[in-house]
Design a protein around this nucleic acid. Structure first.
Lengths: 193, 193
DNA sequence: TTCATTTCTTCACTTAAGTGAACGAGGTTT
DNA sequence: AAACCTCGTTCACTTAAGTGAAGAAATGAA
């Protein structure tokens, strides 16, 4: 399972055996059962997450309603905004499947950086890459209709449609579950003709 | 005008006079007239931009229609996704006002980093901060209606509503110009009662 | 100034999303 | 087994956004 992490890191910097050992000795691998909440609204946190297996969902509770805004699956990293801004979290994180998650906090990161300066470089590259990726996702969301967003998701992350409950998928697409049902029926109708 | 830049940098790292001179000597300050296109679809680029004065708009042309996805104003930095992914640009950048823009390319950045390692640190902090900010913007967009988005913009960036043409604002809000007109009329109607 | 273009608004009509209610299928609990 | 709950779908109705057209206002160029 550690190999998943090292494969990921290898995309940015190459690690020596020593460095790999240093990471493993940090004891940062954790298992969680489906449903476990990793971060709550109002909570302060210094944790970043990296999904080795499973799926983390980010969601807000607005007017008593859950609004899902992101899913993080295998080989995806996330640092909640509250960690950067050092303010209480505005959203929740939970595991929607049994998951194996790597958790690092900013102190550990600082320690790694002092020992192995190339970690800083990796973080910079990663942040810049994620920024560009997210920018593109945001632009695609803005410039398309719910139906186009669904078809787009079907292309880009077909696994999500299988593993995620429909009502969570709906709010991820910016619509209500009923509208997602209707939209899917509409697409099916079109494809028949 | 250079002070705007140094004030910005001071939020992340402190610079010596030498370092400031090194930046100034790079000759990176440029003036552009309203309407000038800085980046075109299909073009390759290594440039990052920092707005000292004026406003840069990012937009796609889809089905012959302009879809505006971002406005960058004073003290805002942007690196187009195509610079990170090293692929041809998918969007356009233009100045919607007479502007003074700082343009740096990745070679210059590399040179600065080798001379002053703290630039790397600044870039990392900046990228992480922008990533968190953009995440929040994206989440707000997803979880709100066009009307809420407009009211939100009115709170957070009231200047945009003044300085940006309505049809560009509309597509920034994810709707058509006609819908923005209607929506504004609706809000005005409500506030009267 | 005049002419042309762009921009914004309004209107009537179409399409699709929001809402509240109801129902059935699957799981879980007692 | 019965009662319960969650989830997805469907329906009827409401609300708001998309569309195409038209006209007024503002802007820019000749």
């Amino acid at each position: 399972m550690q190999e998943v992490l090292f494969d990921f890191i290898a995309k940015y910097v190459s690690l020596t055996a020593d460095e790999k050992n240093a990471i493993v000795s940090l004891d940062i691998f954790h298992s969680f059962k489906k449903g476990v909440v990793l971060l709550k609204e109002g909570q302060k946190s210094k944790n970043s997450y990296f999904v080795l297996k499973g799926c983390i969902r980010a969601y807000y509770v607005l007017d008593g309603e859950e609004k899902t805004t992101a899913f993080y699956t295998e080989m995806e990293a996330l640092t909640p905004p509250c960690v950067i801004s050092k303010t209480p979290s505005e959203y929740y994180l939970n595991c929607i499947e049994d998951s194996i998650i790597l958790i690092s906090n900013s102190d550990m990161e600082a320690e790694m950086n002092s020992k192995f300066p190339k970690f800083d470089l990796m973080c910079k590259m990663l942040a810049e890459e994620l920024l560009a990726k997210q920018r593109i996702d945001f632009d695609e969301f803005k410039t398309s209709s719910p139906e186009q967003r669904y078809l787009n998701l079907l292309q880009k992350r077909p696994d999500l449609i299988q593993r995620v409950p429909q009502h969570q998928l709906a709010s991820y697409l910016g619509i209500k579950p009923q509208s997602l049902s209707r939209l899917r029926a509409r697409i099916l109708e079109k494809s028949k003709q």
